[in-house]
Amino acid sequence: MALVDDLGRALERTPGGGIILTSLDAVMDWSRGHSLWSMPMGTACCAMELIAASFARFDFDRHGTIPRADPRHADVMVVAGTITRKMAPAVKRLYEQMPDPKWVIAMGNCAVSGGIFYYDTYSVVRGVDEFLPVDVYIAGCPPRPESLQDAVLRLREKIRAESIAPGRSRPAKLVLPSPTDPRAGGVATADDGSGEG
């Protein structure tokens, strides 16, 4: 993990100062990965699960994933539902209106491959990756909000490996030496007081 993920604790343990040195990539990836505002491209029944994910029970705000109705505010487009050949140009146009950097989550079987509309259908696009660069695929008909949550976390892992320098990447798992980190020794137990597993 990058040091910025653990910023509070690291500052606390730094003797006599509040200075942290880290790479610009780490800060950028941390900030991008933790505020993935989403463009909910809900066109079919998957949208119900997408909406449920935003509300109190699943509460995606805690991941920084806030649905925005405007593509110009969004970082990630969640394509949740069947995309027809008539709808595809509109979806592509909305994607093009999103500012860089941007990512796409294909939610549900229809967005992944056409789903139940793969065979014997004249009007359905077989997978949104025919015209969009998809980062994370979620299978399911429809997937539960937990799957979408998993996809957001996977996307965050993917973003963590990105670099702001064009054409470069950085190690996704950056393990920093932190002898006081209770997680370094192995599995955290319930009585270590950190509250994190």
Binding site: R85, K86, Y119, D120, T121
Partner: peptide
């Protein structure tokens, strides 16, 4: 359907090379 669509899909003799038969 889009305005430039060719053919009428619910006719029984509708043919479209994009259809994959089950």
């Amino acid at each position: 359907l889009p305005d430039d669509w060719e053919g009428y899909p619910l006719r029984k003799d509708y043919a479209d090379e994009r259809i994959i038969r089950r």
